[in-house]
Design a protein around this nucleic acid. Sequence first.
DNA 1: GTCTATAGGATGATAGAC
DNA 2: GTCTATCATCCTATAGAC
Lengths: 212, 212
Amino acid sequence: MHTVGPRERHRRQTREEILDAALAVISELGAGALNMSEVARRVGLRQPSLYQYFDSRLALYDALFERGMAQHLDRVRAAADTNAPGLPTLRAIVCATIAFTIEQPALTQLLFRPAVPGFEPSEQAYRPSLEVQHLIDAAIAAAIERRELHPAAGSQQGTGLLVALTAGISSLQLGNDQFARPGAGRFLPLVQPAVDMFAAYFAPEKPAAWKP
Amino acid sequence: MHTVGPRERHRRQTREEILDAALAVISELGAGALNMSEVARRVGLRQPSLYQYFDSRLALYDALFERGMAQHLDRVRAAADTNAPGLPTLRAIVCATIAFTIEQPALTQLLFRPAVPGFEPSEQAYRPSLEVQHLIDAAIAAAIERRELHPAAGSQQGTGLLVALTAGISSLQLGNDQFARPGAGRFLPLVQPAVDMFAAYFAPEKPAAWKP
DNA sequence: GTCTATAGGATGATAGAC
DNA sequence: GTCTATCATCCTATAGAC
């Protein structure tokens, strides 16, 4: 990090405002419906001026993706930092992720589902999510270390089950799932039972439950 | 059902061919990228001619949605019919659903995720999925009746957990999920442990596991 | 029912004045 | 850096001949 002049400062602020407007647009119209004119209108610029800040529409998507992933990482990191290592942290991470997807359904479409034809996140934009992955693995490892979970929970299938539960609950929240009961509005209550179920299945004392 | 003349017969066949072409298009370009010109080209017609069979692009989406839901229902029904009632049927339904989403990832986007801006399925197109919902509920009820599951498995949270597991595994398969480990190509093996985990958590003999 | 032709509109992106 | 003007495409949908 090195100091930046007021020029660069203002430029970055404008970039943020554009990203905010872009987020608002996809929140209202869906992740795949981002268009430059609407973003420009909201930020008080003309559409061609946006190209001073982003090279293309897909570049805007990429910046939106990177910022979203970084925000998610912040949430997960905060959850990991303010909870006891092991199972409490794991529970908090799942909870933070579900909460994030509930607060930002449109962003969730962009980050976690292939909903935008033609868009592939760059390696840089994808980077924060690798850190999230690491935090999850570390939490599971800590839980195993503390004998809160069976070592099998650290296997690919073990982490896969936990991740599937997280993604699944988030998926129900998006509401378009055929299985979702009409009127079953709130899925956050599923988080606690989900982690309980996972922890019970990978209980350390009875290794009989898990079959590979 | 009443008999149809050869006219109507040929018309329906052309409709099916158009739907096949449309499915191929979204399979290659993504669920949101359906366009009439490309579909027409593949089916050997000019783009305006499609409007003899579908009133609009969204109507084509709707027909695609309805046929896809009906196909999914067929798979689920077959799973329910060829397995013992209760837990075996439940397991087969989950497995059939995951297999379906693996075979048809693009169709899965359309059916189970809000990936197409502006498209809302009609009530008629949505109808087959209500039947799927009913088959799942019935399988859980049968499993409870046969004392394979605790009655709590039939609660909203219980079915929610099972559905979340199914949707989550399918979500991992789509591959865009941040949590998915690179190289973990096959998620079908997660089905067995997932249902095991669910069944263990809602085991009938020990009602202590589930807390509301 | 299928075609040609085209209306009519939206969009991404660029050129060049200021 | 922001603007006006505009290009170049692409798209859905309709009109009307055959």
